[in-house]
Design a binder for these strands. Sequence first.
DNA 1: TGAGAAGTGGAGGTTGAGTTCCGGTTCCGT
DNA 2: ACGGAACCGGAACTCAACCTCCACTTCTCA
Lengths: 191, 191
Amino acid sequence: MDTSIDAPAQGRPQRADARRNHERILSAAKTIFAEQGIGAQMDDVAAAAGVGVGTVYRHFPTKDALMGRLVAQHFEAIIGLERTAMGIEGPWDAFASLITGGAQLMADDAHMRQAMLRFPDSAWEHARPQTATVDELGGRVIRRAQEAGALRHDFSVADMPMVMCGLCASIDIPGADWRKLVDIILAGLRA
Amino acid sequence: MDTSIDAPAQGRPQRADARRNHERILSAAKTIFAEQGIGAQMDDVAAAAGVGVGTVYRHFPTKDALMGRLVAQHFEAIIGLERTAMGIEGPWDAFASLITGGAQLMADDAHMRQAMLRFPDSAWEHARPQTATVDELGGRVIRRAQEAGALRHDFSVADMPMVMCGLCASIDIPGADWRKLVDIILAGLRA
DNA sequence: TGAGAAGTGGAGGTTGAGTTCCGGTTCCGT
DNA sequence: ACGGAACCGGAACTCAACCTCCACTTCTCA
């Protein structure tokens, strides 16, 4: 995954051990936040990465920044989903794959759910560039489905977070089947 | 609203000022939590009730207990909604009023949303009796709509939390119109 | 290989929110 | 009116979590 965002923009390159630690922290943070949710502590992340807290703070100036980087990573996954969707022939199928795929992505990743529902806005700021791309590509998939007369015309990219957040919240409900909600929402979205 | 749950079960009755303060705290807590969400502080609740923190803790042993009592109150509101729904003639209209009304109830109350999405199970314990009734009445409304052939047959009471949580999460998305999601879900639920 | 820049670790400072404690006050039965 | 039980208030305690600081270690370049 591209780490250039976190590396210093100029000057001499990061030392090898620093680069290694950066990756370890990111990977540990993902696991820890997925397991313990937003309440996970920086000390835990540091321990899981086999590193001191000070090192974590050297790489990410604040907890928000660390969480933000994780959000950004997840949005990169969604961008991948969108590119795949754009390659699908049927306009409706492409759109449906976006919803289903997005839900599946969240179902597989507790951290992403936490991010969607509980991360403070301040953490989302760090993922601005990614969210912009997500909106741009998502908009295209939506427009194509609408032009084919398959998708409700009053649905827009701005409504995607609402739908995805809704699905996201439902995944954590014990004893509920989120696939049924995907089904219901897709049925409700058909033109 | 019934306060007997919080009053001591036996012994001499509460003093008049204590009873008065109990109500004031509950009412202030509702406002404060609705405005500020789960992050609201006990000191703020006390201030809004025109009372010291000590008094708040005399009436509710912990923040969880106070929040739990509020959750219970909200479920009582939902029970009211269900009774109203049972009086509506059209089986589908009755069901739709439940979804719409429940969403509206949550839209009006940030505390309820916080509770749905973020409360620890420990706080929900305080609302057990109410949730049981909610399920019982909700089940009747759902069954009636299904018997009339208006509602998908694979939908059950167990799916209600999923739908409501989904709606709930979407309400907090900035720039989104949750009424549209209600519309989409209802369209998807029609048989 | 050695100098010094870059990086590390983790004890402890700081802050903020929940809870306790107890001297003072208010209510109620006699 | 009065005694005492119940109740009140809010300063202070406690505890947990984020973040800082700096003595020490590791890497890199000449």
